[in-house]
Amino acid sequence: MHDLIATTALGAAAPCVDHHGPISLTEEPGFALASIAARRGAERATVLAIRRMIGPTAPKAGHWAGERIIAFWTGPDQWMLEAPYDSDEFLFERAIKEAKGKASVTEQTGAWCRFDLRGTGLAAVMERLCPINMATFIAGSATRTSIDHLGCFVLCRSEDHISIHGPRSCAAALHHSLLTAIRAAF
């Protein structure tokens, strides 16, 4: 076991938490990510591999699905897998095993920072950030869009819970954007 100490995307030992009005904004460092992309002609096999990891349905375009391990659609025949870091640090290895050479898997854990917005009235925050139509962006929806020039994955986990994955190097900029929008909305 190595003895290196991890830092969060915002550069601290502990995640950053902010509360404002009805909204909480939490830095979430505890997740592992792996991308999985079907090899040519192995689209079906890849979907089956994803199902073995997340449950009965692999998400279609614009959606996420799963429980402990979830998958969200990122592009044609491409998904991102996400799971708790503590239990699934080696999510990419599990995915490689399940893919059986039918899909390309790449560890993505370090590439992203994640911030979670919780509370009622999230639409009022999101409408200041990105062009997602919150009226139809219900639990189970997932999409990539631009937030203050940053390409981000936005997942509606439940009615009062949205998570945003942004480029890790821009964690501070993204956190600032989110906090500014929350304060402007409430």
């Binding site: 790449t106 370090g110 590439a111 992203w112 890790r168």
Partner: peptide, 15 residues
């Protein structure tokens, strides 16, 4: 379009 090749950025995944 028929090459079997998949691409993803890992710029930030690795320091």
């Amino acid at each position: 379009p028929d090459l079997d090749v998949q691409l993803i950025s890992t710029t930030e995944a690795w320091a």
